[in-house]
Design a protein around this nucleic acid. Structure first.
Length: 560
RNA sequence: UGCCCGAUGGUGUAAUGGCAGCACAACAGGUUCUGACCCUGUUUGUCUAGGUUCAAAUCCUAGUCGGGCAGCCA
């Protein structure tokens, strides 16, 4: 059972080493992990990292994975978030089975444990205001001072705490604090607040409570109740670990979970804090939590990312305690790797330039093309060729630069799957802009190869002008033009780093077969990128999101 | 200024006293009915200074730099 040989791709990391050591020491029969979101926002790619770590460990060690909502602050939480979080975790493939929990389910037990602390002289009701408490907490360099209410009798504390629960006091009038050490070098140990009064409606417990436990008083004990063996969280909770352990040692809890911290994920060209993401949504810099430019799970999903790509990414970035900023390029690499295999190939012209094949009849000829270049099982479809077609405007250059081997006057290229054409004329508007091209095709090249096997360097995609389908395409770019949007100069904020050209909506022309697209499918518009149908399609006609572009060594070379 | 944590190519991550490896990126080539995919090759690294040791990325000491902590948020 204590298998350290992982069958999956997940690699060893310092957390797994700790678990291996604990197993070797005989501390556990089974490993139990959990993902503990607060339902106050949507999940993002950083949460995916945590989910993958926790779920991956439970899977590889044949243990259990719990989904537990840390819902101890009714003023910020909502069932809308509970639902979106469950959908996202499930979509990522982290199954929790019957192990769905809520910290609010433990409120009664937590209350009993608070009473236990009071009875043992380890907690007291304090009448200090929030402001007074801040002033007496001391500073980073100076110790705090004891509250004048610190030495109330057990009986008085018991009475007061019961009255706090019964609703006798107003918000903020009193709190329950642990009696630890106001001079402790770790600020979290300076008599931390355990319970605060909040006459607020809770999304699950309704109006049953008007006092709510703080995170510190709820988290570790919830872990203990569920038998969590390793409570994995991010670095900012490191300073809370002594307190986490203090509760476990001073309360009759059924287990002794171990907290382990790792560094959260940071990605270039994006922000990851819940507060900032919420701000982007509320101030309408994006169109909701699932805007395809958002790093939220729902945004990535709508953009066309796959759970497999995200999981592969989380696996590759590793786990450590070191601050990190991962190159967005790695996420895109994982995406392309997955989509290359899954995407159905289609031809779509995003920026059309009309070409008249002057020696072509008025008939429509249908040519077969595979749905995938190396997976025959994906089948094929037929593409209609007519006398007038559209090609990509940038696949033509009147005066070609060095190295350009697509269409230019006198040059022959292959129309993918169809035939060879040679450009004969360039038709221009009075202002000099190119409005149309004339070309001739080689009848011998039908099927996209010729009997003489002559070399045709360029192959371009195209659609029939007559038989194509206009579709709306949404082209996305990074939401921020800065690699590190959080780093704004004096007087500026991350909002000043927003890329205002991150969304471009165009009309493109697609081959007829694309009309059958479904939400579940992924497409590669050949030579242009990966795309997927957007959910808006239902009401407005076919709408596609560009998930990401293809690697493009030509344009990269041109920029030099 | 107190306590805690961290530091390996451009980025991320291995090496757990014994040849600094892998991936992404970059660069150069090959292949190609996608300038995609795929294949081959190249460049780039142990924060600094001492110490322990036959041997240090790894252990010790000091420093430097980066991060976290003073919510009745999580």
């Amino acid at each position: 059972m204590n298998s350290t040989e992982n069958t999956s791709a997940s690699s060893a990391n310092f957390i797994r080493e700790i678990i291996d050591a604990d197993l070797t020491a005989g501390k556990h029969q089974q490993i139990v992990t959990r993902f503990p979101p607060e339902p106050n926002g949507y999940l993002h790619i950083g949460h995916a990292k945590s989910i993958c770590i926790n779920h991956g460990i439970a899977r590889d060690y044949r243990g259990r994975f719990h989904l537990r909502f840390d819902d101890t602050n009714p003023t910020k939480e909502d069932t809308e978030y509970v639902e979106s979080i469950m959908e996202d975790v499930r979509w990522l493939g982290a199954e929790w089975g019957d192990n769905l929990f809520f910290a609010s389910d433990y409120f009664e037990q937590l209350y009993a444990w608070a009473v236990h602390l009071i009875e043992h002289g380890k907690a007291y009701v304090d009448d200090l205001t929030a402001e007074q408490m801040r002033q007496t907490r001391g500073s980073l360099t100076e110790p705090g001072t004891d509250s004048p209410w610190r030495n109330r009798s057990v009986a008085e504390n018991l009475d007061l705490f019961a009255r706090m629960r019964s609703g006798e006091f107003a918000n903020g009038a009193k709190v329950l604090r642990a009696k630890i050490d106001m001079g402790h070098p770790n600020l979290n140990m300076r008599d931390p607040v355990l319970y605060r009064i909040a006459h607020a409606h809770h999304h699950r417990t309704g109006d049953a409570w008007c006092i709510y436990p703080m995170y510190d008083f709820a988290h570790g004990q919830s872990d203990a109740i569920e038998g969590i063996t390793h409570s994995i969280c991010t670095l900012e909770f490191e300073a809370h670990r002594p307190l986490y352990d203090w509760f476990l040692q001073n309360l009759p809890v059924p287990a002794q979970p171990r907290q382990i911290e790792f560094a959260r994920l940071n990605l270039t060209y994006t922000v990851m804090s819940k507060r900032k993401l919420l701000q982007l949504v509320q101030e309408k810099h994006v169109n909701g939590w699932d805007d395809p430019r958002m790093p939220t799970i729902s945004g990535l999903r709508r953009r066309g990312y796959t759970p497999e790509a995200i999981r592969e990414f989380c696996d590759r970035i590793g786990v450590s305690k070191r601050e990190n900023v991962i190159d967005l390029g790695l996420l895109e690499f994982c995406l392309r790797q997955d989509l290359e295999e899954k995407a159905i190939r289609r031809m779509v012209v995003l920026d059309p330039l009309k070409v008249v094949i002057t020696n072509f009849s008025d008939a429509t000829e249908w040519y077969p093309g595979p749905n995938h270049p190396s997976n025959e099982a994906m089948g094929e479809r037929k593409v209609p060729l007519t006398r007038e077609i559209f090609i990509e405007r940038d696949d033509f250059m009147e005066t070609p630069v060095k190295g350009f081997f697509r269409l230019f006057p006198g040059n022959e290229v292959r129309l993918r799957y169809a035939c060879y054409i040679t450009c004969t004329d360039v038709i221009k508007a009075p202002d000099g802009s190119i409005v149309e091209l004339h070309a001739t095709f080689d009848p011998e090249s039908r099927g996209a190869s010729s009997p003489d096997n002559r070399k045709v360097k360029g192959t371009i995609h195209w659609v029939s002008a007559k038989e194509s389908l206009p579709i709306q395409v949404r082209l996305y770019d990074n939401l921020f033009h800065s690699e590190t949007p959080d780093e704004a100069p004096e007087g500026k904020t991350f909002l000043d780093n927003i890329n205002h050209d991150s969304l471009q909506v165009i009309t493109a022309y697609a081959e007829p077969a694309l009309a059958d697209a479904t939400l579940a499918e992924r497409f590669q518009f050949e030579r242009k990128g990966y795309f997927c149908l957007d959910k808006d399609t239902a009401s407005e006609g076919l709408i596609f999101n560009r998930t990401t572009t293809l690697r493009d060594s030509w344009s990269k070379q041109q920029k030099k």
